[in-house]
Amino acid sequence: MSALDPSVAGQLAEDLPPDVFRTIIATFEEDLTRLVQELQTAHESGDQNGYERAAHSLAGASAAVGAVGLEREARIAMDHRQPEAAATVLPRLVAEAKGALEALHALIH
């Protein structure tokens, strides 16, 4: 399955000038680094609220650039009713983040 929804990511790449699109990818990358770090720290310290808040922000950022796989994992993480443990979800989420970034960089002309 593709890491990106082309109707969102492709549209962004098409609508925005290349330098602006590059800036957005850079901002997304910064968000990813920070939010994944926040998720891991919150998980290790048992801060459930912090964990869900970081997952919510990550879901929003991912959806904005069409990173559908990452968004799906972030939404699982932000839902405290879902059965999977954070230790299971987090590695999948990190892998999706890596895949999304690669796919986005590929869209830069």
Partner: peptide, 9 residues
């Protein structure tokens, strides 16, 4: 908007 990516877009 609190998420920088969304604000930037």
């Amino acid at each position: 908007e609190d998420t920088p990516t969304q604000a930037e877009i």
